[in-house]
Each structure stands twice: as C-alpha cells, then as structure tokens.
Design a protein around this nucleic acid. Structure first.
Length: 478
RNA sequence: GGCGCUAUCGUCUAACGGUUAGGACAGAGCCCUCUCAAGGCUUAAAUACGGGUUCGAUUCCCGUUAGCGCUACCA
C-alpha cells in the first residue's frame, strides 16, 4: 500500500502550489488505497509562525480533503539526530568547525562551485571528537565521495531517469551548529521512519533529490519512489510569491472570494496534469479514478491573473460551471452564509426564490451581493431616470408602461406565469411591444437595465416592494 | 558561473514518427431572447530557432536561444 505525505513548512500561508501538491498526493493515495500523511516540516525555528500553521489547516479544511496520519517534525528531533549520528558513525559525514558566515544577499553565483570548506574533511577523528566534546560549534556535513566522481541516480515518475555527478554536489549540511537538523536530513529521516513509499513534491526539489538519495543510502535504506511536479508560476514567468504577486498565491484568498472548494481543486488539477481525453470538469470521484503520474507533464504552468482580473479565467469558469450545475437548494445553502456575513437578513424561503434567478449569472458566490443587490437593498441606489425609457420609446411611453403596471399588478397572481400573463396583456392593451413594457418596470424595480428575468424577480421582490418602487419611478419621470 | 529541468494557439493542454496539429478558457461574429446571463453555431489563434536521423518529424538526437530550479547552518 502506498504511503504518501504532504510536508509543508509553516513559514507562510498555504500556497496554491502547495495545495496542488497536497491534492496530487491525496489523489494518488485515494486512487491506490494508500495512506495520506500530513507532516509539518517545522525545522526552521526562526521562520516558523503559528499564523502560517493556522493558515495551512484553514486552507486544507476548506478544500475538504482529509489525511490519515499527522506528524510534526519538531516532535521528532531525537529521531533525526540519531539518524545523523548513524551516518557519522559510518564515516559518511564529518564535523565542519568553520564559523558561520552571514549569508551574502544576492551573492553573485559566479566562479567555481563551492563544494566544501577547506581542511574540514581531513580533521582526524580524535581531534574532531575532542573539539566537539569541548563544546566547539560545528555543522555536520555529508561527506560526498570525492576521489572518483560517480553518478547519483534515481528514476522520477514524471521526469524519468535522473543522474548527477558527485563532482557537482557540495558537502551539504545535515545538522546545524544548533544541533537542529536541516530540511534534507529531517525529511529523509522521517520519510524512512514513516515508511513513505512515494515522495510527490514540487520540481524545485528535483536537484535536491540527489542529496536525498545519498542520505537514504548512507543510512542504509533504499530511496522511495519520486514524482516531481512542474511548478506553478505567475504570468511574468516568476515563481508565485506573496511579496511579488500578492494574495492570489494564498488558498484562503480563493475561499474568501467565493470559490467553491471543488471548483478550485478541479482547476488546480488541470495545471500540470491532464486526463488525456479532453475532459475538464471532473468530480472528485472522477479525478480519483483517473489520476496517475503518467498524466503529469514536465513544464511549468502559468496561473493567469492581472491587476484588473485577479483570478485565472479558467478557474472562474470552472467555478461558474459548478455553480450553474449544482442543485438550487445546495446553492442556496452555500449562499446563505455569504449573505449572513454581509449582514443581510434574508429568509430561507426568499433565498430559495432568488437562487435560481442568479444561479447562471454569478461566477463567484460573492457575486450574489452585486448581481442581486436590489433584492436586499431597502432603498434602490439612485439611478438616472433616462434609464427608464425603453428602446425606441420616450418618457411618455415609460410612464404609460409603469402606470399600466401599477394598475395591473395589485390584482395579478404574483407568480412567474401570472405576472407574465398580466404584463403581456398590459403591453397589448397599450399597443406597445412586450419588451418596451418590461424595460421600464425592470429598471424601476432593479435600478438598472441588466438584471435577472423580470417575472421571477418581481415574484421574489414581492408585491409591496414592486409597487413602491414603481411608484417612485413614476415620480422620477414626472 | 556550475549543475539540473523545460520549450505546441494569449493561457491550460491533446497528438507516445504519418492528423486539414484536436479540445477547453479567454477574444470576435451570428442565432435564441423581456435586458443580462446561459445555451447553440461559426471564426481567428501554436509546434522557439538551426542542424541532423528518417521515405516522413510537434514527436528521436545535437547545438543555439529563452525560461525556471538548485547552488544556505531556508524549505
């Protein structure tokens, strides 16, 4: 049975790329009857924060995807240290007593590749032990074979055969001078201990994997299977970052904007993966049934957004499609909290009337507040009385239509069909086109020309509100 | 700089040597229609460049260019 893990480090909110990594891991586990593990990789004490930990859980909770086991690396330091000691004991690592140098900002990565600090590899065992015992700080480094370069190899489920010469791999750190393990060490130690079978993660780790293979082997274990995922990038080609691209990189932004979790998951799945049969809208079950590493491609995928349009058009479309095709009662249920949050009081019965009217007109749940504002406003926002004048008509015609409505509406049956019959008859009596009759009424009642279908709208608004608003429109015209 | 990875319409992608290079989103147009949507139909739009290999390259190989990643006692 496969065992996979999602291992975020709590140094920022849940990133959309991380969310996709979680989803692909989850899909693989569920597809193959495996175990999904959430492991918090919090070895970077300086940068960890509780807020980002919260953000990760919040984001995952919203996505509605579960996991079977949960760990935190900081609880497992003893295991990591033991793991490091075993590598040291085998002579495959050494202590580097070089004092820590402050990282140079924008270091020009030119010149020769740094492989190790001079002299440190050659310190005799006894001296090394003595200095360590005396409390001299050191970082434990992996002793990459130097005598004859050899190829480190692994097979990636997405990128295929990978090979890199040890001559191009530096003596990377296993333990910091504080004794805290580095990411490389902790990650491998935990992957071994948790019996991870497949490591599915971002392609930014592809070259790190050579180091990991070295660690696994040094500790006496066969490395697990690897599957690296192409990166998600911004339209400018750069890796998505909060500093550069703002809140669009955070999962909670999508939640707060009114995306449905499944639409978002569906969108993310389509970035860097394809079912190869032109299907795009897929249920969670369909995704689970068809997901495989073979469908993952190798080039980075752009999430399209701009200042004007903060969300990728396809994500928006997927969300709109999901909204349109869900049962109206279900939509009402997710719309209710949106209203509540906006401080709008609306009964379930009334919302049930409104939902079908806006269902195919909103892309985001939040759009209810703008597309359907007139349903909830006590007082219509001011509009130009010229708006009331129908096509190929004049103010007199508008007035005529509105007065007719006032005459007909009090006695009409306030249902879609009843209203349609009454208003069409009214238009006929006036000798004007139905459209010319409806237009002024629509504007009177909605405050604008583009709105949901008229009869349902009138019904949802109720007789009193309609009559009152038409009254006001007439006064405006006069 | 070194090493690694990548390169098909604006974007996401399909085509695992032979297709008029397909689909979707976004765009344009038409139809439907009480406005707006939705829906239907139509349309424009791509194999980065240069060499090979082959009867035949989007597909395989090499080079160039470009982008990305790693090159930390971050992950």
């Amino acid at each position: 049975m496969p065992r996979v893990r999602f291992a975020p480090s709590p140094t920022g909110y849940l990133h959309v790329g991380s969310a996709r990594t979680f989803i692909f891991n989850w899909l693989y586990a569920r597809r193959n009857g495996g175990t999904m593990i959430l492991r918090i990789d919090d070895t970077d004490v300086e940068r960890n924060s509780d807020q980002s930990l919260d953000s990760i859980f919040e984001g995952l909770k919203w996505l509605g995807l579960d996991w079977d086991e949960q760990y935190r690396q900081s609880d497992r330091l003893a295991l990591h240290q033991e793991f490091a000691q075993s590598i040291l004991a085998k002579g495959l690592a050494y202590r580097d007593f070089t004092p820590q140098v402050a990282a140079v900002e924008d270091a020009p990565h030119s010149g020769d590749t740094w492989l190790c600090n001079p002299g440190q590899r050659e310190i005799p065992q006894e001296e090394s032990d003595r200095r360590a015992a005396a409390g001299e700080p050191f970082v434990l480094r992996y002793k990459v074979p130097r005598d004859t370069p050899e190829a480190v190899k692994f097979t990636d489920a997405v990128y295929g055969e990978q090979s890199k010469s040890t001559a191009d791999i530096e003596d990377f750190a296993l333990l910091r001078s504080t004794g805290i393990p580095t990411y490389h060490l902790a990650s491998c130690a935990d992957d071994v201990d948790l019996r991870i079978s497949h490591i599915v993660r971002g392609q930014d780790h592809l070259t790190n994997t050579f180091k990991h293979v070295l660690i696994f082997k040094a500790a006496g274990y066969e490395p697990p299977q690897f599957a690296h995922l192409p990166l998600l990038i911004a339209p400018d080609g750069a890796k998505l970052s909060k500093r550069k691209h703002g809140p669009v990189v955070s999962v909670t932004t999508y939640r707060d904007a009114g995306f449905l979790p499944h639409a978002f998951i569906n969108f993310l799945c389509l970035l860097g993966w394809s079912p190869k049969d032109d299907r795009e809208r897929m249920t969670r079950e369909e995704l689970t049934a068809v997901f495989s590493f073979e469908g993952i491609n190798r080039s980075n995928a752009v999430i399209n957004f701009s200042d004007e349009e903060p969300f990728d058009a396809k994500c928006l479309w997927l969300n709109a499609e999901t909204i349109r095709t869900m049962p109206a009662t279900e939509l009402s249920a997710v719309l209710a909290p949106v209203l509540a949050e906006a401080g709008i009081d609306c009964s379930a019965e009334r919302l049930a009337l409104i939902t079908p009217l806006i269902q195919e007109r909103i892309k985001l749940l939040k759009d209810l507040l703008t597309v359907g504002d007139f349903f909830f406003a006590k007082e219509l926002a001011p509009y130009d009385s010229a708006e009331l004048i129908p096509k190929k008509g004049d103010a007199a015609m508008a007035l005529q239509a509105l007065e007719k409505a006032l005459e007909v509406l009090p006695g009409a049956e306030f249902s879609h069909d009843g209203l349609e019959a009454a208003l069409r008859a009214g238009a006929e009596q006036l000798g004007i086109k139905a459209g010319q009759m409806f237009e002024p009424i629509r504007v009177a009642v909605c405050g604008r020309k583009t709105a949901p279908p008229l009869f349902g709208t009138l019904e949802a608004l109720g007789r009193d509100v309609c009559l009152e608003r038409i009254d006001k429109a007439i006064a405006k015209l006069k």
